[in-house]
Write a protein that binds this DNA or RNA. Structure first.
Lengths: 144, 144
DNA sequence: TTATAATAAATCGTATACGATATATTCAAA
DNA sequence: TTTGAATATATCGTATACGATTTATTATAA
């Protein structure tokens, strides 16, 4: 068996799925002037209200090289503020604004839209969810 | 239940998994001077030897805006050639070179490395594979 | 046959994504 | 206390990724 055939790869459909689902999000997110990555940042902030770049990056598995420009963009849209911490001025405190909180109302219909689009049974969705987090756990726990 | 919590998203772990697995590929692919996307292009060509940009893009779900610069890079590494078709000069024919074919030998160990890293049982891997392709089918079949 | 539509790549602009490095600040040890 | 290590962001360079447009070529219909 040729292990280098595309059809024998597990990462390839993962890569395609991620890309294509995000593509499906795009028209929905365009309506509220967000990209997919901006959307997951906003989801984090709808839940946490305030954080620094490090904390955010730990959840999204992104570093400041990606987050800083993205956060500046969200700041320019008045969805967040960025301020140096007075306790430790190495930290940049990201806070959600009133406008950012309001935005959640416009996003409420998005999850159902996407669930419908992915069109898996509850059981399949559950199984997928579990396996994906297992993979993440397995990958991240590895020493380098 | 708040559907806009990150932990209630299915796309989020998909996005993370794709990203993190590709991150794990990076050191392995660095050794053979390929990026992940270049790697899947080479996999396609190890199997098909020759194609045009459209055919390649149909499999990888990428358009010429992404593929053209990437293929020029692979051409500069002498892994492929790019030539206008004599039948229909709208088509750019991508052909794998001898050096590109040789590269496969250096890539043979990569799949096992990655399987070990992902560390799923055969059954889980099978299940994941099936559900991912089901999602892809469901997403792509939708009218717009 | 000629104007128009369709097709295939390429180009352009914007937004991630990430390794590597730089900068600023705080911590910690001698 | 001062100097070097550690930490948190930011910056830089390169590589996707993709919507929109442009260019070149081929197909098609009047």
């Amino acid at each position: 068996m040729d292990k280098l055939l595309l059809k024998n790869q597990l990462c390839f459909p993962l890569y395609l799925c991620s890309k294509e689902i995000i593509r499906k999000y795009t028209p929905l997110l365009n309506k509220i002037d967000l990209t997919y990555t901006q959307y997951i940042v906003m989801m984090y902030l709808w839940e946490n209200k305030e954080c620094n770049v490090k904390e955010l990056g730990k959840t999204l598995l992104l570093d400041s090289n990606t987050l800083t420009p993205l956060l500046k963009k969200l700041e320019s849209k008045d969805y967040i503020t960025r301020n140096k911490s007075s306790n430790d001025s190495r930290n940049t405190i990201i806070s959600i604004t009133e406008k950012g909180l309001e935005l959640k109302k416009s996003a409420l219909a998005i999850p159902d839209s996407m669930i419908k689009c992915v069109n898996l049974s509850d059981e399949e969705a559950q199984t997928l969810y579990k396996i994906l987090y297992k993979v993440l756990y397995n990958i991240e726990k590895e020493e380098n």
